[in-house]
Design a protein around this nucleic acid. Structure first.
Length: 835
DNA sequence: GACTCCCGCCAAAGC
DNA sequence: GCTTTGGCGGGAGTC
């Protein structure tokens, strides 16, 4: 009563409550049952989405710190005429995005979208660490195989899959500066709507296309909780909660409801329509790397906390989730804070302003450590760039090595360049000044050389890769033993290319390319080229692979087990140590490889090209990582018609159908198979996000290698690929223009060699495909969906990001084998429609 | 009949 | 011991 008397706010609230009660009583009295029901708001009017709209309408998206940004739950519930329970639903989701934070009992602070960019970035990072992409793919795979049948064995398998994820018990992802407040409500974190909401958002941020079906989301969320309890009721409950979350996210215009139509029917799904989130660059740079509107420097993160964060940058997850050892400390602080602040129903306007002024105080001092750090980094980068340039010059010298460079007639399009773009072992010519950068790949075993058209923007990336993983032609009889050389390595390599998504925990990944410890320059590269001509023992590969794994694992472990460094000097020290250690190990491995090679050589394995060619009756496959390593983008164009040797075994039909991935490519051992990844497509930068081409491992025969097969998945989908035997240069020009490799109007010279290039593409089918249409969309933020949208989901990706490819190799018995740790899911079409 | 999701019970946490 | 918070599932409304 005293409070009520002292507070006009409370008094008026109570008056309103009384009035409302009276009104409803009166209504009930005067209206008949039906009429009364009709006078009540309909179910739709009471929906959480609408409620959330009303809720959001009360507060600005980007509140200025001068405003009163406090939320009193009681008050809001009353004004919106809903139970407080419903407000909790909204607030919990908003809290997961750090749009609000709890201050005290019944009181929240409104931050609006100031923190959204950072939060999304953090969520994406955690999502990547959690390998949600893999989990989604796993579930989709099971769905497709109709194998998701809740039996023990499957669950066990799922558990293993999920269990490998160290963050499976992931708690609430926090932003620096907001930890204390969020901590107070972390009590039921396991199943909290907040955590669920964050995970749900993560699924969108890591998946491509950014469409997540409720079913998949629910399964993943259940999978992380208790796999053994996978039952229908749990599933149903999860779905219910996801609807709750989705309603709020929809109101925030972060997602939009769509329907995914598959063979098995129409499924509810949601599509991300929120801001595009760039891959994390560095935790400490989070504030500035967002594509979303950058938060103002004066945002309401307490400067003290910001300062401590900047002073003690930590690696990885620690920035977002609390270290267990801090929980006690945090709790005691939080308790103190509560004691001060817990008076939820008291008038607080004055104190609120004071508090706000405090939080609004520009934290420029807090930024100082970051600025200093950036300056230091900048200086060291410059020094390293100089180094890099020097080593590049050295590489250029090596390019003239006759052993390495096949000296093809340099056509006009392959004019020499000042800058070496590729490491030499592949016999690559430097890119020309022309926008198209054709380089020549000696195809030693088949005797066919290829012109590789590299997009200039991609060419530079080639130099950053590790020569340790070289082109390694291997007799198919042994190919099954290859598997993927190292899925970790493969993931890493593929993650590096294309869109620069850095999702790996490997600390070296965060280093500039030229700082990476394993770039062992040309000596090992040359060695590797020789190897590429001779190596054929699978035990060698296996050995190398296991060694590599042990390097990664042991180093990874050693890093994992160490405490997070508490200062940048410590970080540098650790990185240096890591680099040294890794280099040592890599050298050891290279020596192992070399000794194996020598041993092999002694076993009279011909190095001579011709001899090898004659040996090519045995189908050959390449180790994929090597290829990927050196050709992140571009087109393979055979310089001559392949007519000799093993090609005779090819029927015309096979040639024509080589584009058809499902059968022809894999169904029989193919001589001189060259894996070309669809990441190359993406590297062409047709479009980066949304319904992008997902990486796909395309195996091409030299007889049909052309620009075409890497054009689009739709080509691969097409079962009626035809082959134009002798396309003119204008066809080639058109093709290259079409995919943006050369500007419009530029003609590829009618090179007599290139003129004979077989083209098996179907540009029409490419341009007519829905996905290609999507590819031409310019990404907009938020993107406007098209309706209906057909999405070809490509499940050939291995876990590890959009650029990862799976490794599939032909075996001696003619059957296809899928590499360990990879996923092989047939393509299927999904139609996405919006309601 | 399936899909959505409101509603309110009730237990845990907080005060 | 009261209040706040929020997990949870029944079941009603909608398609």
């Amino acid at each position: 009563m005293l409070i009520s008397a002292a507070s006009p706010e409370i008094r008026s609230r109570e008056q309103r409550r009384e009035l409302s009660n009276t009104t409803s009583e009166v209504l009930q009295e005067h209206l008949s049952g039906d009429e009364y029901e009709k006078s009540q708001p309909s179910r739709k009017e009471k929906s959480l989405g609408l409620l959330c709209h009303k809720f959001l309408a009360r507060y600005p998206d980007y509140p200025s710190t001068a405003e009163n940004n406090y939320i009193c739950l009681d008050e809001v519930a009353e004004e919106l005429n809903v139970e407080r329970r419903r407000i909790y639903d909204i607030v919990n989701v908003l809290e997961s995005l750090h749009m609000v934070s709890r201050l005290a009992k019944n009181r929240y602070a409104w931050h609006g979208r100031h923190n959204l960019a950072k939060t999304l970035q953090a969520l994406k990072k955690v999502g990547e660490e959690n390998k949600y992409t893999q989990q989604i793919q796993m579930i989709k795979k099971r769905e497709y195989e109709h194998e998701f049948d809740f039996d023990g064995e499957r669950n066990e398998e799922m558990a293993r899959s999920f269990g490998s994820n160290e963050h499976s018990e992931m708690s609430f992802v926090e932003l620096p500066g907001m930890e204390f407040r969020a901590a107070s409500v972390n009590s039921r974190k396991d199943k909290s709507l907040r955590v669920m909401s964050q995970k749900f958002v993560m699924l969108f941020l890591v998946s491509t296309p950014q469409i997540v079906s409720l079913e998949v989301a629910a399964k993943i969320l259940i999978g992380e909780d208790q796999l053994e309890d996978l039952d229908k009721s749990k599933f149903k409950t999860k779905i219910r909660r996801l609807y709750d979350i989705a309603n709020v996210l929809s109101s925030l215009q972060l997602i939009k409801k769509v329907h995914v139509t598959e063979e098995r029917g129409r499924k509810p799904a949601f599509k991300w329509t929120g801001p595009e989130v760039l891959p994390n660059i560095q935790d400490t740079k989070l504030e500035t790397t967002s594509t979303v509107r950058p938060p103002p420097i004066s945002e309401s993160i307490p400067s003290k906390e910001q300062c401590s964060k900047n002073l003690f940058p930590s690696q990885g997850k620690q920035n977002f989730t609390r270290h267990p050892s801090l929980i006690k400390l945090v709790k005691s602080i939080e308790n103190d804070r509560r004691k001060i602040q817990s008076a939820p129903t008291s008038p607080v306007k004055i104190s609120a302003n004071t508090d706000q002024n405090l939080s609004a105080f520009p934290s420029k001092m807090a930024q100082l450590p970051v600025i200093a750090k950036h300056q230091l980094e900048g200086q060291s980068k410059k020094a390293k760039e100089m180094k890099m340039k020097l080593s590049s010059s050295a590489l250029e010298c090596n390019l003239s090595s006759p052993e390495v460079v096949p000296k093809p007639e340099p056509p006009r399009i392959a004019a020499p360049s000042q800058q070496p773009a590729l490491t030499q072992p592949l016999g690559v010519c430097p890119p020309s000044h022309s926008p198209v950068s054709p380089v020549i790949l000696p195809h030693t075993h088949s005797g066919v050389s290829y012109a590789i058209y590299l997009h200039p923007s991609q060419a530079h990336t080639v130099t950053t890769y590790r020569p340790s993983f070289m082109l390694q032609p291997l007799p198919c009889a042994d190919v099954t033993g290859i598997k993927s050389i190292n899925s970790n390595v493969l993931n890493k390599i593929t993650t590096e290319e294309g869109d620069n998504q850095i999702a790996t925990a490997d600390p070296t990944e965060s280093l500039p390319a030229n700082e990476r410890p394993t770039v062992k320059s040309e000596p090992s590269s040359q060695r590797c080229l020789k190897r590429s001509q001779a190596l054929q023992a699978k035990n060698l590969i296996k050995r190398y692979r296991s060694d590599e794994e042990s390097v990664d694992t042991s180093l990874g472990e050693s890093i994992k087990n160490e405490r997070p460094p508490s200062s940048s000097s410590q970080i540098n020290h650790k990185v240096d140590n890591f680099q040294k250690e890794r280099q040592n190990k890599t050298e050891t491995l290279d020596q192992n490889m070399a000794s194996c090679y020598d041993q092999h050589k002694r076993e009279d394995i011909p190095e001579d090209e011709d001899k090898i060619k004659t040996k090519q009756d045995i189908p050959v496959a390449f180790a994929i990582p090597a290829f990927q390593t050196f050709f992140p983008s571009g087109y393979l164009i055979p310089l001559t018609q392949c007519t000799h040797g093993n090609k005779a075994g090819f029927s015309n039909k096979e040639k024509a159908g080589i584009c058809s991935l499902q059968h022809t490519t894999y169904s029989s051992p193919i001589a001189g198979v060259i894996p070309v990844t669809a990441s190359e497509l993406k590297a062409v930068n047709i479009k980066k996000k949304a319904f992008q081409i997902t990486p796909l491992n395309i195996m091409l025969s030299p007889t049909s290698v052309a620009a075409a097969p890497v054009l689009s998945n739709s080509c691969l989908n097409s079962s009626n690929t035809s082959s134009a035997q002798n396309p003119s240069s204008s066809v080639l020009s058109f093709t290259l223009q079409h995919v943006g490799l050369i500007p419009a109007g530029v003609q590829v010279p009618a090179n007599p060699v290139l003129r004979h290039m077989p083209v098996s593409s179907q540009p029409e089918s490419v341009s007519h495909s829905a996905e290609n249409k999507n590819l031409q969309e310019k990404p907009s933020v938020p993107r406007e969906p098209q309706e209906p949208q057909t999405v070809t989901e490509n499940f050939f990706r291995t876990p590890g990001g959009p650029n990862t490819v799976s490794s599939l190799s032909a075996s001696s018995d003619g059957t296809d084998r899928i590499s360990e740790g990879t996923l092989y899911i047939p393509q299927r079409k999904l139609e996405v429609s919006e309601d």
